[in-house]
Structures are given as C-alpha cells and as structure tokens.
C-alpha cells in the first residue's frame, strides 16, 4: 500500500502531506497536521463536528478523503480568526453563551460562516435548517441561533 502525495492549501498556507488512500481529510488534519480544532463526533457525516470548507463548499471532513484535497482550498476553524481579531461569529458565540462544553462549536462556527457567506440575512428558520447537520447536545440550540442571527446583523451593518 503506497501513500499518496498531496499538495493543498489550508487556511491560506501551502501544505504537503503523504496519506494512505483510505485516510479521511479529518484524519489528515488531526493526526498528520496537528489541526485538532476539527472534531470527530461520529465519523459518518451525521454530527457536523468536523465541518470544514473545501473550495468554498461546506463538507464533513470525515466524509472526504485526504487525497481529494489535492489542489483544493481548505478552510478550518483554525483559520477563522485573523490574528488577534475574532470573526464576528466567534465573538457572538462567546457573548451569547452559545457554547457549554464547546466540542460542537468549531463545526457550528464553520457551518454558520458558510451560511452567512451565501445568505447574509437568513431568517431564523433558514439558520435552523442550515445548521440542522450540526449536532449540539448541551444548549438546545437557542443561544446558538441567537448568536448566529446577531452576528449576521452586525456583519450586515459593517458591510
């Protein structure tokens, strides 16, 4: 079994790695590159804790092979803040107490950012359906939805 050489871009950084043909992008991120912000809650695409974007599209990194990242632009939670400046979603999640344990938070933030890039003015229902693929067991989603809606409003005002 020979490994595959992959050249890709992660959060703007050029990255090269070798991975096994069956290895998922999530495994590569976590185990080969030390980017453990993406979490594995299920490994079957049901929980969304491993959400990243690949060429701008929201994906579960546990359902993408590491080899498929060849030539792609990958964005993970580690790239969301710019230096000392948190993304408005990150800030609003802390302000609204939208996390309790925090294990689902990276995936939900990546997914919510992807929503607001497509739809800067979502209804509550649109936000709830967009985030339906991201499980949270602590919060009952109430404060998460409030944080997303508040961040969207702030981002609309700023733009």
């Amino acid at each position: 079994m020979s490994r595959i050489h992959v050249t890709t871009t992660i959060n703007g950084d050029p990255v090269e790695y070798l991975c096994d043909p069956e290895e998922t992008l999530l495994d590569v991120l976590r185990d080969r590159l030390g980017l453990t912000g993406s979490k594995e809650g299920c490994g079957t695409g049901d929980c969304g804790a491993c959400s990243v974007t690949m060429n701008g599209r929201l994906v579960c990194s546990c359902l993408v092979l590491g080899a498929e990242a060849e030539g792609a632009q990958i964005a993970t939670i580690e790239g969301m803040a710019k230096g000392e400046t948190l993304h408005p979603l990150q800030r609003k999640f802390i302000e609204h107490a939208a996390l309790q344990c925090g294990i689902c938070t990276p995936g939900i933030l990546v997914a919510a950012k992807s929503l607001l890039e497509r739809n800067p003015d979502p209804t509550e229902e649109e936000a709830r359906y967009w985030l339906a693929g991201n499980l949270c067991r602590c919060t009952g989603y109430d404060k998460i939805i409030r944080a997303v809606m508040d961040a969207a409003a702030e981002m609309r005002e700023a733009s």
């Binding site: 969301m80 802390i94 996390l99 925090g102 294990i103």
Partner: peptide, 17 residues
C-alpha cells in the same frame, strides 16, 4: 464572558482525543 471562550471558538481547546 467565560474564560475558556476564546480557546473553544478558535479550536485551541484540547479535548480527550
């Protein structure tokens, strides 16, 4: 604001795995 908030929204917080 909670003290572990920034770690948990940036992916820096270290969980079991």
């Amino acid at each position: 604001l909670r003290p572990d908030g920034i770690d948990k929204v940036t992916g820096r917080a270290r969980f079991g795995a």
